[in-house]
Design a protein around this nucleic acid. Structure first.
Length: 757
RNA sequence: GGGUGAUUAGCUCAGUUGGUUAGAGCGCUUCGCUUACAUCGAAGAGGUCGGGGGUUCGAAUCCCUCAUCACCCACCA
């Protein structure tokens, strides 16, 4: 053995050894183990990393799942760890579009099919890269069970679920206030938007009251939307406006006569106490509009420009129209004053921080009423348990909102929604496509068909915009009834497919894996996707199993939410801050074992932000070397006479220090096992570290250095081998390597050896 | 605006149901190249556990209050 532990060489060798023996395959492990009994199933789903980029430091937290997999495998459970990678819809398209941009191109240069296959190739390359990187950190998933989010089995499952939900009335199509990015040309769910502090001018606009000399002044940051105003609202308790309540005001931009309504929502103390109501472009106005049965006027088109209703401002983008509309108002004498330094918050997308336009757009929705209800019950009953009460409360709070889930996205990279629109029944389908000469064309299908044949349109199809009340057929394939159809060009929200991950990976409903490993035992994920993913999986699971013999089932019994990996000063790692760590750089420098310890023991995975400190990782690299050298000491002291594993506490030749360390060691086993079962990784790891370094290496080993008897050697070997087992889930490589050095012919590999008790 | 959590050594954090002199890693100081390991060993400095009040024989640990800092949700015309 080398004096210094060479992690680079040995980690590769050990992983190779496990793969050669198929030690990650549950079927094979049963044969490798001794005794060859089959334990209870214990299954873990890997949250599929996005296959659009190399892994980042957050993926080092996969060590948590791997720890549980290795721990339970050694305990004799029938462990199946299901891996996979995600297509990550919009995220991936975003990454790919940036790539196109560097090449001087954009998504608008391609028809749907071409763009889709380009992105798919890109993703497949990255998917392999992601898997290889996970292997580098020692992940012991059964790679032969790998699932990619666009595999046929996944797409089939997604279609089936959509069709089932549609049949049962949970899916509907509606015009609804959505978060629309005119830049990306797609909607976002509420979870995908943020508010940003901003300073904007606040305009005070006078609306004259019909039949009087008086006017009501309203404050707004978006004067360009006055074209879409339908009412003025005041608080019913506001005495200043009581006299106007039955009167009508004149819209200063288009002369529309608008009612003055009363609603509790209006804050008496804010601005002037009077609020303009624009149901087409503001979520609160939309709600008030619905309540008071007001007309909804859409002023902004999908391309982000104002439409013909905006008169003089038609064709302008909102920020341009703002300037122009203010000029017009000024000329008309309707501008009372401007507060230039007004602090407000503007809606942006989470990805790039570009403005989001709330607007009414036809979209596919899931009614969450029943689905949430079932999920709430299972959380309250603790059919599904969380590692902190905080998470239980947060997820309940969110579920109780029961907000409809918009599931359609206007991106091409994703699973398409299996819907077809009959052309003859829908006069007003708006189509964008690239013709055979490579020119982009836009128009209603009726007018386009007078110039092009349907085949040419289909081949170059980019987007079909469909009104909310369109007639449609739900079908995976184009209906064969002789009618002409255009497909839905929207794709599913990526969470619609990843929400069914527990089903697609295990092969719901008939496969043996599903029968054996569902519901899964342990789910580890970062808390930031609690609503996106964990809540959705829970709802899908309860829904899809509701008609089964066993009744509704949760997808996993235990959820462990870990924190975001932060730098040593507790700041979340992000590219913009420049404090990111490439996990593979640490693997290279200090070894995967050291990195894993840095995550599992150096920080605290259970807190919201868990620091990863390079100094600590270096310390754990030293620890690996310490372990290596204890093994080396044992090997040297064995000389030519091999010492077998195992010694009984009843052995008469044991001296008092031997008995002491053997008993201390059993106490350690008990404590570590119990802590791991409670997911207390940090304390368990610290205890082993402390025991090996201080108790075993510094103390006992020094005590027996001069002893020549075999008993001391046997005791040392016994205690050390137990330590290797306890530490294996944390530091799989060095423990296995040390074990390989000490084991004798016929002994099992550490990965499939039995957990001590 | 609604809610949650945190505040312990220079830094990053542990401290299980309240119980003997408050712990770890890194960093720091001094000494030591002793044949497992200098990616090491030995010894050591350093904290009135955010402030104040209370319960108790006894509180970092329970209660109240103040302060500071995070975070989640909703969203201001």
């Amino acid at each position: 053995m080398e004096k210094i532990y060479n992690h680079k060489e040995i980690e590769n060798k050990m992983y190779q050894l496990w793969e050669e023996k198929n030690a990650f395959s549950p079927e094979k492990v049963i044969k490798l183990r001794n005794p060859k009994n089959i334990g209870e199933p214990y299954s873990i789903l890997m949250p599929p990393p996005n296959a659009n980029a190399p892994l980042h430091c957050g993926h080092a937290t996969y060590a948590i799942q791997d720890l549980m997999a290795r721990f339970k495998r050694m305990q004799g459970f029938d462990v199946c760890y299901f891996p996979g990678t995600d297509h990550a819809g919009f995220e991936t398209q975003y990454v790919y579009e940036n790539k196109l941009k560097k090449e001087g191109k954009s998504r608008f240069d391609y028809d749907r099919q071409t763009l889709y296959s380009l992105v798919l190739n890109f993703v497949k390359l990255n998917s392999d890269l992601a898997i290889n990187q996970l292997k580098k950190i020692g992940i012991s998933a059964d790679w032969r069970r790998n699932t990619f989010m666009l595999d046929k089995k996944v797409v089939d499952r997604v279609y089936k679920t959509f069709i089932k939900m549609h049949k049962e009335g949970l899916i509907y199509r509606d015009g609804y206030m959505v978060n629309y990015s005119t830049f990306y040309g797609t909607t976002f769910s509420d979870l995908e938007t943020e508010y940003k502090d901003s300073v904007s001018p606040l305009y005070y606009i006078k609306y004259s009251v019909k039949g009087t000399e008086e006017s009501i002044t309203v404050a707004t940051v978006r004067p360009e939307t006055i074209y879409a105003d339908v009412a003025i609202a005041v608080n019913p308790k506001d005495n200043r406006y009581k006299k106007y309540v039955d009167k009508v005001v004149i819209n200063p931009l288009n002369g529309r006569e608008m009612p003055i309504i009363q609603d509790e929502y209006v804050d008496i103390d804010f601005g002037t106490g009077a609020l303009k109501i624009t149901p087409g472009h503001d979520i609160n106005d939309y709600k008030i509009g619905k309540k008071h049965n007001l007309e909804i006027i859409s002023l902004i088109d999908l391309d982000g420009k104002l439409n013909e209703l905006a008169k003089d401002c038609a064709g302008l983008y909102p920020n341009q129209a703002r300037v122009k509309s203010v000029e017009i108002l000024k000329k008309k004498g309707a501008l009372a004053k401007v507060d230039e330094a007004y602090e407000n918050r503007v809606l942006i997308d989470y990805k790039d921080g570009r403005p989001i336009e709330p607007m009414i757009l036809p979209n596919w929705f899931i009614n969450m009423e029943q689905l949430s209800e079932a999920a709430i019950k299972s959380v309250e009953n603790e059919d599904i348990k969380f590692n902190k009460k905080l998470w239980k409360n947060e997820i309940l709070r969110w579920l109780k909102e029961k907000k409809p889930w918009p599931i359609s996205r206007q991106t091409i990279f994703g699973i398409s929604i299996p819907v077809w629109y009959p052309i003859e029944d829908n006069d007003n389908l708006q189509v964008t496509f690239i013709n055979s000469k490579g020119e982009s064309k836009f128009g209603s299908i009726k007018s386009l068909l007078s110039i092009y044949n349907l085949k040419e349109i289909e081949d170059g199809l980019q987007k079909v915009i469909v009104p909310a009340n369109a007639k449609y057929v739900v079908s995976v394939d184009k209906p064969g009834d002789g009618k002409q159809y255009l497909p839905e060009t929207d794709t599913f929200d990526t969470w619609f497919s990843s929400g069914q991950w527990p089903f697609t990976t295990t092969g719901f409903p008939d496969s043996s894996d599903f029968k054996k490993y569902f519901p899964t035992s342990f789910m580890d994920s970062m808390w930031d996707i609690m609503f996106f993913w964990i809540a959705r999986m829970l709802m899908f699971s309860l829904y899809l199993t509701k008609d089964s013999k066993k009744g509704s089932q949760v997808p996993f019994k235990n959820v462990y939410f870990h924190g975001a990996i932060a730098d040593k000063s507790g700041k979340k790692m992000s590219k913009s801050k420049g404090n990111t760590i490439d996990p593979l750089e640490f693997v290279e420098k200090y070894g995967a074992d050291a990195l894993r310890m840095g995550i599992l023991v150096g920080g605290n995975t259970a807190s919201r932000y868990s620091p990863l400190d390079e100094d600590k990782v270096r310390g754990y690299r030293n620890f690996a070397n310490k372990i290596w050298n204890v093994a080396r000491f044992i090997q040297i002291s064995e000389e030519n006479a091999a010492v077998p594993f195992g010694i009984e506490l009843t052995d008469k030749t044991l001296r008092s220090e031997d008995i002491k360390i053997l008993t201390d060691c059993s106490a350690l086993v008990e404590s570590v096992t119990s802590k791991l079962n409670k997911y207390n990784f940090k304390l368990a790891g610290e205890e082993i570290y402390e025991f090996i370094w201080n108790r075993l290496a510094n103390q006992y080993l020094e005590e027996i250095k001069d002893r020549k008897d075999i008993t001391a050697k046997r005791t040392l070997k016994e205690v050390f081998s137990i330590c290797l087992k306890l530490l294996h889930p944390f530091m799989p490589f060095v423990t296995e390597a040390a074990w390989q050095e000490l084991k004798q012919k016929g002994d099992l590999d550490l990965i499939v050896s039995n957990w001590p008790n």
